[in-house]
């Protein structure tokens, strides 16, 4: 997908996520973070020439990249993976929600957003 479309999608999803209570709606809060972060990662990967616009990642490690990435992108992927790792317990399981994981989503998305904006300049 085109870089600008990834950014628009991210903005739409984050705007929708702004309607959520991150404790009461934690499943969708985690999912929205994952989806928005993935769009930003794809935008950066396309912009840096690591992936082409017809080859989007679905998750930070799916599909695996066949090229090395710069440390800033590796850090984006690490932070996105931390969000993705919450899904098995909170979306698909019945793990009791911990508010600290809401903080993790907020902090990691802030970092991903900041890095994306820097790399896309």
């Amino acid at each position: 997908m085109k870089i600008e479309d990834h950014i628009i999608k991210c903005e739409r999803i984050e705007r929708s996520a702004g309607k959520l209570n991150r404790d009461a709606d934690y499943e969708m809060f985690v999912e929205a973070s994952m989806l928005a972060g993935t769009h930003l990662l794809n935008a950066v990967l396309h912009h840096s020439g690591i992936t082409q616009e017809r080859n989007d990642l679905l998750h930070s490690d799916k599909p695996l990249l066949d090229k090395p990435v710069k440390p800033e992108i590796a850090e984006m992927m690490r932070r996105l993976k931390q969000i993705e790792d919450l899904r098995s317990g909170y979306l698909r399981g019945k793990t009791a929600w911990q508010a600290t994981h809401g903080d993790l989503c907020v902090d990691n998305m802030e970092s991903i957003r900041t890095t994306a904006h820097e790399l896309l300049r």
Partner: peptide, 18 residues
């Protein structure tokens, strides 16, 4: 969450995901 927070058009992405 879907019924309480999402508009079917404005929030279509998260509606689908839900």
């Amino acid at each position: 969450t879907r019924l309480g927070k999402f508009d079917p058009d404005d929030d279509c992405e998260l509606l689908i995901w839900s």
